[in-house]
Design a protein around this nucleic acid. Structure first.
Lengths: 231, 231
DNA sequence: GACTGGATCTCGTAC
DNA sequence: GTACGAGGTCCAGTC
C-alpha cells in the first residue's frame, strides 16, 4: 500500500465525467492496483477512485501542464472498461509505502447470529415460562438455532432468520421431523422467528403447525447489554 | 488527517456486529473525527469505519489485553447512535499527520452537462438540417441549454435533463414565452431532451407543443471522441 | 457468466 | 424534518 499526500486535481471519465479542482488530498494506491482519492472529511466514500482490475501508469506532464505547475500525471485505466482516472499532481507532501500482507477479512456475526444470541438471552419473548436449553442444538442434519422448553416443559425448536422465507420453514420442518422421532425429545413444537416473515412462509408455517414470531431487533438490542461490554 | 499503519484487530457493534482478526491495516483518521479501516486490496469500501459525527478516545489496555499484546485501544463512538468501533492496536508501523485543508468537492460535470456537450456536437440527432447556434444561450431569466435552428432556419430552444420531469417542462416553457417575445428570434419552438422522460412530463410537453426527445447516452458517448482526449 | 437482492448502504432532492 | 429514488452504486449470493 502506497500513501501519498499531494496537491492535485483529478479527472474521471467513465460512466460519468467528474472533476476535482486543485487541493491537497490523500492518494491511496492498493496492492491490487486500485486507487482511492480521499479528502479530510466526509468519511467512508472516496471522492474518486478506480476499482480493480486496473493499471496505474505515471507519465510526464506535457508543456502546458508543466506551465500550470503539474509535476507528475497518474493515469489509472480500468482493465476491462474504458473508465479512466487522471490525477495531475502539483506537489507531493508525503509518500510512503507499506507491506500489509493478506487480510483475513471481515467476520460479520451479522444480524442472524446476533438475533440468535439476543433471543437466547430473552427466550421469555416466546412466552411466559419458556426456558433456554441451548443454542446450536446439534442434530444429525445440522444444528437447530435454539432448543427451549415451554411452560409445560415440552421441547420447542426455534429457527431464526432475518427474513423469514419459505426455505426457513422447510428447514425447520426437517428438524422437527427428525427430533420428533427421538422419544427423549418428542413432542417437539416449532417456532419460526424472524424480523420479517413473508406471507407465503407464514401460510406454510401455520399449515404445518409452526408458530411464527416477528422479532423487533431494535427493541431486543435495547434490552440487551452485551454491546456495552465493549465499553 | 492522520495515517496509521498498524497491526490491529477491530470490533464493531452497531447496526450489526462485526470482527476483524489481527492483521496489518491502514487506519485513517479524518479531520471530522471519522475513522476508516482499509486493507491492501478490495478497493473503494473500507473494511470497517465510523461515520461522523463521532468521537475517538484512546485508552490504556487492561491487563488481559496487555498480555495478549495490545499496546493501545481506540474507541470510536458515534455521537448520536450507540454505534461503537473498537480498534485494538498491537503494533504501530507508521504514524503521520497531515493538514489538508478544505476540499472544494467533486464537480460532477455529470450527466446533464455531458449530455449537453454531446447533443451540441450531435445536434443533427434532433433532425436533418438542424444546426447549433450556441450552448448556454443567455436570456433574462437564465441560460437556455442549447439554441439551434431547424432545417427551415427557425429557432429551436432545447432543454436538457437527465431525468425529464415536469419541472424541466415548466422551465422550458418560461424560456419559450420570453424568447417568443423577441421578434429577432420568434417563432421559437421547444425540444425537451432527456435520457428518460416521465409520462406526466411528456403529456405536459405535448400539451404545450413541445417535442420530446429521448437521448441514448451510451450511444451518444460511443459516437463522441471527447473522452479519448484524456488519453 | 448473468441475474438478484441486501447494504452499518450513501447521497441527493422533493415534499 | 421525512420519504423516495438513484448510485461510476458495491457486494455476495444464486442460477
Amino acid at each position: 500500500m502506497r500513501l501519498v499526500i499531494a496537491r492535485c486535481s483529478v479527472d474521471y471519465a467513465g460512466r460519468l465525467s467528474a472533476h476535482l479542482p486543485l487541493a491537497t488530498r490523500l492518494l491511496l494506491v492498493k496492492a491490487d492496483g486500485s486507487v482511492l482519492v480521499h479528502s479530510d472529511s466526509l468519511s467512508y466514500k472516496p471522492l474518486n477512485w478506480m476499482s480493480p482490475p486496473c493499471v496505474l501508469s505515471t507519465v510526464e506532464p506535457d508543456e502546458e501542464q508543466t506551465e500550470a505547475g503539474v509535476t507528475e500525471v497518474w493515469k489509472v485505466a480500468h482493465a476491462k472498461t474504458a473508465d479512466l482516472l487522471v490525477i495531475s499532481i502539483h506537489e507531493i507532501l508525503h509518500d510512503s509505502s507499506h507491506a500489509l500482507g493478506h487480510d483475513p477479512g471481515l467476520q460479520k456475526d451479522g444480524v442472524e447470529a446476533h438475533l440468535q444470541k439476543l433471543l437466547a438471552e430473552q427466550i421469555e419473548l416466546l412466552g411466559d415460562g419458556y426456558r433456554l436449553v441451548r443454542r446450536e442444538y446439534m442434530t444429525a442434519i445440522g444444528p437447530v438455532d435454539i432448543l427451549a422448553t415451554d411452560a409445560a416443559g415440552a421441547s420447542v425448536a426455534v429457527e431464526i432468520k432475518r427474513r423469514g422465507d419459505i426455505d426457513g420453514v422447510e428447514q425447520l420442518t426437517r428438524y422437527l421431523e427428525l427430533m420428533n422421532r427421538d422419544p427423549l425429545l418428542a413432542p417437539v413444537s416449532g417456532v419460526f422467528a424472524a424480523q420479517e416473515i413473508k406471507p407465503q412462509a407464514r401460510t406454510l408455517a401455520h399449515d404445518r403447525g409452526i408458530r411464527c414470531v416477528v422479532l423487533d431487533y431494535d427493541e431486543m438490542r435495547g434490552l440487551d447489554d452485551s454491546h456495552s461490554r465493549l465499553f
